[in-house]
Write a protein that binds this DNA or RNA. Structure first.
Lengths: 319, 319
DNA sequence: CCTTGATATGAAACGGGTTTCATCAGCTAT
DNA sequence: ATAGCTGATGAAACCCGTTTCATATCAAGG
């Protein structure tokens, strides 16, 4: 492999000049520039990026921490991140964690080790104060609703989302409203329970812990939800399903459980995925791709900001 | 940032010894090892990975070229790759191309520039001979059915898959069989047309070019397919839909088009995605995750191999 | 006692760039 | 004339590790 020294020798200039040509610095005479360029063409020279990274102290690589690769929610965010990264000459290193804290640390470690210029955290299990220890090594941005001056973030007001959905169902006449979550102790779950309880209190409705269904993330989890739901007495007349995948599965499998939708049980989903449109699922649109784009912008920006995104209720035919 | 020199000074040893400790080389006395380890603890020292990469000439990063991030087919392959990568201490750099040759080149370029140790190509538009120019810079493996001694690969026999599906439909009594593809000039499309024509010839059936529906990749593309299909006379009585996403959309939307399945039109999908199970779609299982795992193995292995994977016809209720 | 091999250690070369700094030429403003 | 710029250039320092090679010690084998 020819290196910059060979090139300098061949072009009859110093390595400095070669470096200048490579980096499009001014102050290189036309004559020498041409000589260097010819040498580059002749040898097929390419920089060794590891040397460039070492020397410059940056890599143009951004780490992306996310739990799953096969869920439309994260795929959508990732597309936003990825398109913006492409546009800004950044590449992405992926850290699928399955909510494992250790795997999350790996990305953070690489930030410390200068392999990454920044990290986008699309879901985290690491305590916030641990994360804070790492901001000194590079920008960390979060897909998370938490005001902080340590991290930039993008988010939707999940309390608002949840509340809007509940009020919508209430307004449609429902009084026995259940909801689904993924992890009992996930970031959103606690907020959701609080919001749910506040909603109930506001309308003088009783709390029923069985109305919260957990473990609902993928399409096939809907069967669990249906199984549990059918055993309840009184059974909810409306369900806020916080994943269109699960909601879709719910619609598809409901008939087999002898449940008609929306008559016996109304359903509202979340995310507005393609399947939701196909199944005419009432859902809440979250601009995930735009949020992904914003995350990439933020991780490259020196400014801290907490950027909210608006959601839209999409009324279709399941409520 | 403390570096290895500071550490050596602090521990009262040479940088060589520090390096030995860091890399768990033998031939370091217990006493010095302890001194070095203490220095590491005290300073919170971590290697600068860019220096390590430069010095070692490798990065433990594998590039993954794939067209889309939001399609279950590729997501599944990616999961396989990613889990194996995790297990083998490799990280992944992602190159979503949307079938753009230039973006594909980017990954290849990074291989030349030593930023990647190898590349996994899950779909390519770059001509094979161009790809061949890059094998000198590092292993390239393909998710593609093409015997080559330049590249390792994993694949299913798409001709066989296609044929099996067609014969299955034939055996079920269908004589007007259509099929869908994504890109007219995609890797598989030509093979499929040949296979299709051979199938027709074998059974003395006429060829009808309208029976090939293109642009079918995502769920929502099914509407196009349905629209075109309903206009045909005679209309196919069976459809081989080469994406479960599209097949799912087809099932979902069929009723709105006044088409009952399987009575008026049988459907067989491809990939056996979760949605296929939910919708009781007859489909063909492809072990995508296992194939992804194999790809990662191959890219790290010095041996070339072309590894076939078996498929399974999953009979459900749409044929 | 001598050879040989295993253990232990550090100096220096090496991987391959970028950037600072000093220097010099030529030009302009005073 | 001369101080002060701007343009052009290269030597050398710097980024930070790994690895080769030379050297030294000590114990076992003959």
């Amino acid at each position: 492999m020819t290196n910059i020294k060979d090139l300098a020798k061949r072009a009859g200039v110093s390595v400095t000049t070669v470096s200048r040509v490579l980096n499009h610095h001014p102050y290189v005479s036309e004559a020498k520039r041409i000589k260097v360029e010819r040498a580059i063409d002749e040898t097929g020279y390419l920089q060794n990026m590891n040397a460039v990274h070492l020397s410059k102290g940056k890599t143009n690589v951004i780490g992306v921490i996310l739990p799953f690769l096969d869920h439309p929610y994260f795929a959508q965010v990732l597309i936003g991140i990825s398109e913006k990264a492409q546009a800004k000459g950044q590449t992405l290193m992926l850290f699928p964690t399955n909510y494992d804290a250790e795997k999350e640390q790996e990305a953070l470690l690489m930030l410390r080790q200068k392999q990454l210029d920044g990290v986008i955290v699309c879901s985290r299990v690491t305590p916030l104060h641990v994360l804070e220890d790492y901001v000194q090594y590079g920008p960390i941005v979060l897909l998370e609703q938490r005001k902080s001056d340590q991290f930039s973030s993008v988010f939707v007001d999940h309390q608002d989302v949840f509340n809007q959905a509940l009020e919508y169902l209430y307004q449609k006449g429902h009084r026995n409203i259940g909801y689904t979550i993924y992890r009992r102790n996930g970031t959103h779950s606690k907020v959701r329970e609080e919001t749910y309880r506040a909603f109930l209190a506001r309308h003088d409705l009783p709390f029923n812990k069985d109305y919260c269904f957990d473990g609902a993330l993928y399409l096939e989890d809907s069967i669990d939800v249906l199984t549990k739901l059918m055993k309840l007495e009184p059974s909810p007349t409306a369900l806020l399903i916080t994943s269109d995948q699960v909601a879709a599965g719910f619609l598809i499998h409901a008939k087999a459980f002898g449940l008609t939708i929306p008559e016996e049980c109304a359903v509202i989903g979340l995310n507005d995925e393609p399947i939701a449109k196909a199944l005419k699922l009432t859902t809440i649109h979250i601009p995930l791709k735009a949020m992904g784009e914003a995350l990439l912008d933020q991780v490259l920006s020196p400014h801290r900001e907490n950027r909210p995104f608006d959601i839209t209720l999409i009324e279709r035919q399941t409520v």
